[in-house]
Amino acid sequence: MTGTFYINNEEKILTFEGGDILLNTLRKNGYSEVKNGCHEGECGACMILLDGMPVNSCKIFTAAVIEKKITTVGGLGSIHEPHLIQKAFVEMGAVQCGYCTPAFVLTTHALLNSKPLPTDEEIKDALDGILCRCTGYVKIIDAVKLAAQKINAHE
């Protein structure tokens, strides 16, 4: 089957099978920044924003989100033009192996859209669906706070 999706603000027509999972469809179509982790909805590496909300793409049928707006981390920034959130993660040393970083960046983006100055608890709640085995989370939480400052100052 085919379906139209709005991925990173571009209209895309993708071909897939009825039982395909969105994570696989995205990766097959070049969106390798959506990481393949546990396939169980536990690790969060496959995070995307679906209509602006963080979701696990490994637990979503592609056919169930036809015509939806999908954002991957590639839609926020690039290595040459990083988003303020990505800059904050680099500055705070919140990236080590980097496998979970797209998920944290996207989730931070969604959080700061709804809560521009989140408390520590709100940050922890928002990030509760992503596992990082390198950093111990402290620097990630600091990075979210720095990102909030940067975005608020920028606006």
Binding site: M53, K59, D125
Partner: peptide, 12 residues
Amino acid sequence: LSRAATTPIRNR
């Protein structure tokens, strides 16, 4: 419901 599962799962 705010404590069920995790944020990305609660969104679905």
